[in-house]
Simulated assay, not measured.
Amino acid sequence: MDNLPYVISHFRGSQRVFLVIVGIIPLLLLTVAALPSVLILPFWGTRGLQRAEVLIQKLTAWLRVLLRDSRHAQH
């Protein structure tokens, strides 16, 4: 029973790592799928450039949320 706090804290750390891995796989797939758009849209005028910027901003925001929420339970 003396090792129980260590086991619980170790499990929480492993759980966070697992959740980040599970969450990052769809994000990577989405990033790979969006890559052609990000490379081509800027050449379609200002509207295409704006769409590419929005796409990059959304991908960045999703990554920030994923990483921030993985650290949230550390307080």
Score class of each variant (00 low, 15 high):
Ser14Cys: 09
Thr31Met: 03
Leu66Ile: 09
Leu63Val: 11
Gly45Tyr: 04
Ile8Pro: 08
Arg16Ile: 01
Ser70His: 09
Val65Ala: 10
Gln57Leu: 07
Leu39Val: 15
Leu27Ser: 06
Leu59Thr: 02
Ile40Trp: 07
Leu63Tyr: 14
Val32Phe: 15
Trp44Met: 12
Leu27Gln: 11
Leu28Asn: 08
Val7Arg: 10
Ser14Phe: 07
Ser9Glu: 11
Leu35Asp: 05
Ile21Asp: 15
Val65Phe: 07
Ala33Thr: 04
Leu55Thr: 09
Leu39Tyr: 07
Tyr6Val: 08
Leu63Ala: 15
Ala33Lys: 10
Pro36His: 01
Leu19Lys: 05
Phe43Tyr: 03
Gln50Trp: 05
Arg12Gln: 10
Gln50Lys: 04
Pro5Ile: 01
Val65Asn: 09
Ala52Leu: 02
Ala52Trp: 00
Tyr6Leu: 12
Leu27Pro: 00
Leu19Tyr: 04
Pro5Ser: 03
Ala61Lys: 06
Gly23Arg: 02
Asp2Trp: 07
Val22Pro: 01
Arg64Ser: 08
Thr31Gln: 09
His10Ser: 13
Phe18Glu: 12
Leu27Asn: 07
Phe18Lys: 05
Phe43Ala: 02
Arg64Asp: 11
His10Met: 12
Gly13Ser: 11
Tyr6His: 11
Trp62Asn: 01
Gly13Pro: 00
Ala52Thr: 02
Arg68Thr: 09
Ala33Gly: 06
Arg51Ile: 04
Ile40Phe: 11
Ile25Val: 15
Leu19Ala: 15
Val32Thr: 12
Ala61Asn: 07
Arg12Asp: 06
Ile24Phe: 13
Arg51Cys: 06
Ile56Met: 15
Asp69Ser: 14
Gly13Phe: 06
Thr46Asp: 15
Gln50Met: 09
Met1Pro: 02
Ser14Tyr: 06
Ser9Ile: 08
Pro36Gly: 01
Lys58Leu: 08
Arg12Leu: 05
Leu67Asn: 13
Tyr6Glu: 13
Trp44Gly: 09
Val22Tyr: 07
Val38Ser: 01
Glu53Ser: 11
Arg68Gln: 04
Leu27Phe: 10
Ser70Val: 08
Val38Asn: 00
Leu55Arg: 03
Pro5Arg: 03
Leu63Pro: 00
Phe11Ala: 15
Arg51Gln: 09
Gly23Asn: 12
Phe11Arg: 13
Pro5Trp: 05
Val32Leu: 13
Ala33Pro: 00
Asp69Val: 05
Asp2Gly: 13
Phe43Met: 03
Arg47Tyr: 04
Gln15Lys: 07
Leu27Glu: 08
Val32Tyr: 13
Val20Glu: 00
Asp69Leu: 11
Ile24Gln: 07
